[in-house]
């Protein structure tokens, strides 16, 4: 069903015949039933589908949080489909930047320390000062300069999600994987966040967005519809929706 892309320069995600079966007592549930998906470098893909469609399972596998029952998943030229827990942790750290619906920042921890966190687990050669600088740069990129010392409880929802995006960016991952990133935000803030994703994409970041809201998905350049564990439709958005245009008041500038 999936339309392979031959026009992209380099595939970041290559998924072939992916199957995930959950054993629930006597019953086997085929959450994913032969998914093929290729995402090229620099793409902005939204994965859509109703609950129970298998999109969360797909996200978990793309995010290397879970392993497929069968099939292959090549991420940034590495076959990660049979990797061990620890190997996947290393891949998650180096290649994937997660953005979650509920932000998932560490409470009672400053924005800067939250952004630094992935570097603490990385093969990061630099000094503490370099690490702090990298975190500061990432916060700057999402327009949060001056908020480094704030704790999540002192930040608005939109600001918290920006911290989370900065955390996703700090390791310069191959893909940013955003799971319903606007699910907990009002529509104006949602547009701000989508604006940041679009800016990041414009500067070359590969972004995979999981959502069930068509309005949000329209901000991507390509929408993949998942249903019953299969890819049902793979459409390219011709008319880009620019998030910034939907906001009357100017938002904080986003540095590239």
């Amino acid at each position: 069903m999936a339309k392979p892309n031959f026009n992209g320069p380099k595939a970041v995600i290559e998924i072939r015949d992916l199957v995930k079966i959950y054993h629930l007592g006597e019953v086997d549930v085929r959450a994913l039933d032969g998914v093929d998906l290729t995402v090229n470098e620099g793409e902005f893909v939204a994965i859509m589908g109703p609950s129970g469609s298998g999109k969360s399972t797909l996200m978990n596998i793309i995010g290397c949080l879970d392993r497929p029952t069968s099939g292959t998943y090549v991420l940034d030229a590495k076959d990660v489909s049979r990797m061990s827990r620890d190997q996947r942790a290393i891949i998650r750290n180096a290649k994937i930047g997660f953005v979650f619906q509920s932000f998932n920042l560490l409470a009672r921890t400053s924005a800067l320390e939250n952004v630094e966190l992935p570097l603490l687990y990385a093969d990061f050669d630099g000094s503490t000062r370099d690490r702090k600088q990298a975190a500061r740069d990432a916060l700057h990129r999402v327009g949060l300069e001056g908020r480094e010392a704030n704790h999540p409880s002192q930040l608005s929802g939109g600001q918290q999600q920006r911290v989370a995006i900065a955390r996703a960016l700090v390791t310069s991952p191959a893909i940013v994987l955003a799971d319903e990133p606007t699910g907990n935000l009002d529509s104006r803030t949602s547009l701000e966040i989508m604006g940041i994703f679009q800016d990041l994409n414009d500067s070359g970041k590969t972004i995979v967005l999981i959502t069930h809201e068509p309005d949000i998905a329209r901000h991507a350049k390509r929408i993949v519809h998942v249903r019953d564990g299969k890819i049902q439709q793979d459409e390219r958005i011709m008319q880009d929706r620019i998030a910034r245009k939907g906001i009357e008041a100017p938002i904080a500038p986003v540095a590239r």
Binding site: G63, L65, R85, D86, A89, I90, R92, N93, A94, F98, N104, L105, L106, L117, P118, Y121, A122, R167, T171
Partner: peptide
């Protein structure tokens, strides 16, 4: 949840 966050962003079991 904190452990989940740490694992998602790359903490290994031994970390």
């Amino acid at each position: 949840r904190e452990i989940g966050i740490r694992m998602a962003i790359g903490a290994r079991g031994r970390h």
